[in-house]
Amino acid sequence: MTHPTPPDAQHVPPALHLERLAKRFGPKVAVDGLTLTVPQGSMLGLVGPNGAGKTTTLSMATGLLRPDHGAAAVLGHDVWRDPAAAKARMGVLPDGVHLFDRLTGAELLRYNGLLRSLPEEEVARRSASLLEALGLADTGGTLVADYSAGMRKKIALASALIHAPRLLVLDEPFEAVDPVSGEAIRAILRDFVASGGTVVLSSHVMELVESLCDRVAVVADGRLIATGTLDEVRAGASLQERFVQMVGQQAQGGESLAWLRTS
């Protein structure tokens, strides 16, 4: 995947910059001094084993969870000192968060659009085209509470897009989404990046990250253990192989489960 010429780092602020972010929950250190820079116009895949701190990191980067230490900035605007400016430029699909699910899809989009102070006609126009693009146009009158898991993911994604942000932060955007809708979402994201937008998405599916992203960040135990362009990180191997090499000491399989063999 190619992306527009790299912006001059001197003058153009990175789309997302995390500086030594740290968070602990009781005795457990969830994120341990994580620093990451995502240049504008890139699509970054955030990968890491379960419990690595991906969701905690993204929550701190998007203003949902106050970090113990460190800072996060969106296009040069500090998320925690100047939240209004940072949040206006960022669209977020959080994972494991309820939606206002006693609204219909159209009502939910209108709600998010108006919360962001968009003009009413603009909200109506955008939400109609978003519902169309994500295959939700024929769900009028159905509460989001009665949507399937994949449909909820799509309406949440639409809510993150309605204000035309310049940075998208998506936590597991393809989980439970059917292949057709998944392709539609990919097309939307590619188009978004081609026009100068930036995407940060987390995923457990390495093939998906390889086919979609031009940059990768690998997180384990709350620390960043590798980041760079896709080719730099996978270093000649497949991303799956590299990932297992980097974080997967336990993924040996083998003799300890010998009893599981049926014959």
Partner: peptide, 15 residues
């Protein structure tokens, strides 16, 4: 009563 859906108020930066 909003439970974690309140996160959307934070994400949209509503005052």
């Amino acid at each position: 009563y909003d439970n974690s859906a309140f996160a959307w108020h934070l994400l949209t930066g509503v005052r």
